[in-house]
Computed example of a mutant assay.
Amino acid sequence: MKIKVINPNTTLEMTESIKHAAEHMARKDTEIIAVSPKMGPISIESYYDEYLSIPGVLEEIKAGEEEGVDAFVIACWGDPGLHAARELTDKPVVGIAEASLYLASMLGARFSVVTVLPRIKTMLEELVDSYGMSKKVVNIRTTPLCVIDFENDPVRGMEMLRAETKRAIEEDDAEAILLGCAGMAEFADSLEEEFGVPVIDGVVAAVKFAESIVDLGKKTSKLKTYKYPERKEYTGLLTEFAHK
């Protein structure tokens, strides 16, 4: 089985960390291809970043169709471009936020998300609501760190996550913790061991869901919503994005 894990930002060091987390938990017969797009922001921390990351994600989905990929994972906790990606392929496409939310709902009745900068809280609240999880997610806790800070200073990153995880359990009555950034994958096991509650890294969750969907022989429905895009002309910078 071949799973392509797309880090929607262009920070290659983070892509390598994501690949390590995915390979660590994937089956031995699963090949992980971890990539960053050729274009896009170095990190995603706003609506602007998220929307401009999507063309690069879609390019990697198209390339994956030619690479013989069996499933795709979009490794950003905003799940940028997830629905558009599903229109480009009949292979399973799994977002890490989607996967971690669904997994957490099977492990705890209430859970909190711990993530990066405060400015993305509203973005994630809207995302959680779109998945019908607003009643289960009791809080979205932010830290003063940006995405790249967790890569560059993992010791401080762990301190921030530990503090917010403790508050989530004591103040939110959270029964599980979701790490709201693909760059936090390396911290999940240590936090779970320390606090004794499920701590879910979305990259690992998404890879395991992708493996299961492929094993079940299921593909993305092309009946209506996720059918292939209509053929039409695109102009300017988007010329190459016209569906052929």
Rank of each mutant, 00 (worst) to 15 (best):
Y48W: 12
V128A: 15
K121C: 01
V94Q: 14
E65S: 07
V57D: 12
V73I: 15
L127M: 07
R86S: 04
A84M: 08
E60P: 05
M133P: 02
V94S: 13
G68A: 07
G78N: 12
V73Y: 13
I74N: 10
S134Q: 14
L103Y: 08
D79G: 13
A63W: 00
E65F: 10
Y47N: 09
K91G: 06
P55Y: 11
R141K: 11
G108F: 02
V113P: 05
I140M: 03
E87D: 08
S53Q: 05
L107G: 11
I44N: 08
E125P: 00
V113W: 07
S46H: 06
D90N: 14
K62M: 08
G56P: 08
A104P: 01
N139K: 01
S105A: 14
L107S: 11
S130V: 09
A85D: 09
R110N: 15
R110M: 08
D70I: 02
P92K: 15
A85R: 10
K135W: 02
A71T: 13
E126H: 09
V137R: 04
T142F: 02
L52V: 12
E125K: 13
I61A: 00
Y131D: 10
P118Q: 07
V128K: 10
I54K: 08
P92W: 14
A84T: 02
G64L: 11
R86G: 04
E67W: 12
V138G: 05
L124A: 05
A99Y: 02
E45T: 06
E65H: 09
I61W: 07
I44K: 04
D79K: 04
A97N: 11
D129S: 14
T115R: 01
T115P: 01
G95L: 12
Y102E: 04
V93H: 06
G108V: 09
L103I: 14
G78E: 09
L101S: 05
K135S: 15
S100A: 14
G56F: 09
W77A: 15
E60S: 04
E98Q: 15
E126M: 10
S134Y: 00
V138K: 11
M123T: 03
E45G: 09
S46V: 09
Y51G: 01
P118D: 08
V57M: 07
A71E: 14
N139A: 15
M106N: 12
F111N: 00
T115H: 00
V116S: 04
S100N: 02
V138N: 05
E125S: 06
D49Q: 08
C76L: 07
A109F: 01
E67K: 09
E45Y: 07
